[in-house]
Design a protein around this nucleic acid. Structure first.
Lengths: 123, 123
DNA sequence: CTACTGTTATATGATGGATATAACAAGGGT
DNA sequence: ACCCTTGTTATATCCATCATATAACAGTAG
């Protein structure tokens, strides 16, 4: 699995990495129980600092995507029944829908995009 | 129109304000050609600094939601046919869909949420 | 014993967020 | 003319966050 980090983005490096890993889980690139690369090797792969990777892993742990084992490292363990998930999703969708509404983008177009994204992730 | 600013949020104040205004436009609280409160009065209303409001207004101008007139202030002027809008929406949706996919939230549930949000904004 | 794992501590430089004070140019109202 | 309000710009300060670096510690696999 390769990661696309944009050093010129205004998004923080550790957040880009976190999102890429979440995307990787969604796309089944990483499977339940599988270990992510160690913080040090991942840092070398991408060319960033060890602590930046650690920050991403810690965020993933906090958000219920991995469990950290002292020997195996960061192990994929998604907490599917996580309290507050729906609220979080709804809050993020609100801004997207508000922007779309302003631009005269219909709900059907949003539905289409959502479907395309789901299908794209399933292959 | 009242604004809900959370001083304990980790989201920047000027971004919260910007999103609230976008939401206000989407919900037809503000109409095309109408002026937003001046940066100074808005700052007094919410209890934040003038420059923080100005930063929000400048962002709205950059993103094509208002045009700034020296005498009328920030006037609602939504650029509906804006290049890159769909790409922006798609990028923001990607993270949401990825998270949803990890949590076993189906595309139907996302569709439902989108519909609810659209309807909620239309009243 | 060695090599690797995550974790913690500390320090530094850079950037961004929020505040404050001040001044300027332009238009409206009286 | 005068005053008020408008957005805008210029500094300056304080604080939090981001990203880096070096270092050390504790646990575990070989």
């Amino acid at each position: 699995m390769q990661f696309e980090i944009d050093f010129n983005s205004d998004e923080a490096l550790y957040l880009q990495l976190r999102n890429q890993i979440i995307l990787g889980i969604a796309m089944d690139r990483f499977h339940e129980g599988e270990s992510l690369p160690s913080v040090r090797s991942m840092a070398d792969m991408i060319g960033i600092n060890m602590h930046t990777v650690n920050k991403a892993y810690t965020a993933l742990k906090q958000e219920g995507y991995v469990k950290v084992d002292r020997r195996k490292g960061a192990v994929i363990a998604v907490d599917a029944d996580r309290a507050g998930t729906m609220d979080e999703i709804r809050r993020e969708l609100q801004t997207v829908v508000a922007k779309s509404s302003c631009r005269n983008i219909s709900r059907e177009e949003i539905h289409l995009m959502v479907d395309e994204l789901f299908e794209w992730m399933e292959r």
